[in-house]
Write a protein that binds this DNA or RNA. Sequence first.
DNA 1: AAACTATAGGCATATATGCGCATATATAGT
DNA 2: ACTATATATGCGCATATATGCCTATAGTTT
Lengths: 119, 119
Amino acid sequence: MYNLIRSLKALSDETRLRILNLLLERECCVCEVMQALNVSQTRASRNLGILYDAGFLKLRKDGLWSLYSIDRDGMAEYLPYLVDAVKKALKENRLVVQDRERLMKAERVGPGRVRQLRR
Amino acid sequence: MYNLIRSLKALSDETRLRILNLLLERECCVCEVMQALNVSQTRASRNLGILYDAGFLKLRKDGLWSLYSIDRDGMAEYLPYLVDAVKKALKENRLVVQDRERLMKAERVGPGRVRQLRR
DNA sequence: AAACTATAGGCATATATGCGCATATATAGT
DNA sequence: ACTATATATGCGCATATATGCCTATAGTTT
């Protein structure tokens, strides 16, 4: 029950739903998420962390990068229901479509590229 | 999307999950809910209101009583997923089992009975 | 009408949440 | 070792949330 509440809380936030939607597309590093959602690094990192703590995400380190992806196996039995709900609610959402477009252009870049996006 | 967030928030609370679980059983008035959950009248009423505002509940007035029940029709397309998730998470939960037992004994009573239960 | 009751709403308060800023940490390259 | 970069985190502020107390409202009973 408390797991469910924690999961629901983790999903009750626009930023986090948008992140989840990106990751349903593919694995992303923090800087890709911040580019795609056009949010600050703090915000991207924090909310990825919250989704991770709630058990939704897997984390893989690769050099400098933290690569987050949906943890399909780690999900408790009821979480698939939640993900279905999220998918249904997000499909066709204007904001989310923009996110995906920006994700196409986003790169896991070298020096100097990401910093410039920090507002 | 914002509807989903509102729904998730409405469900991210132990009291409200327990209430929802009662109402999955049958229609209840506020005083039955407070008896079954053993919580204050304010708390029962407020949280029923929150679930109502989120679109989960139907309200029917009968004299003094406000009778709340699950609004199966009024639910948006993704809400059934949420309800399934809730059902799965709550089944076998100790607290929730107690709630149901108290609900059996709870009555929509006349004068003097309910007041005594207010802590 | 008077007394009583179920429910809701205002107010005050405690707690939780989201976020930015600044900074710390970890890794890589020179 | 030094510099640059990606990510994480401590702190503080603003805001949201939950809840209890008290009171108002509307319906019931006598």
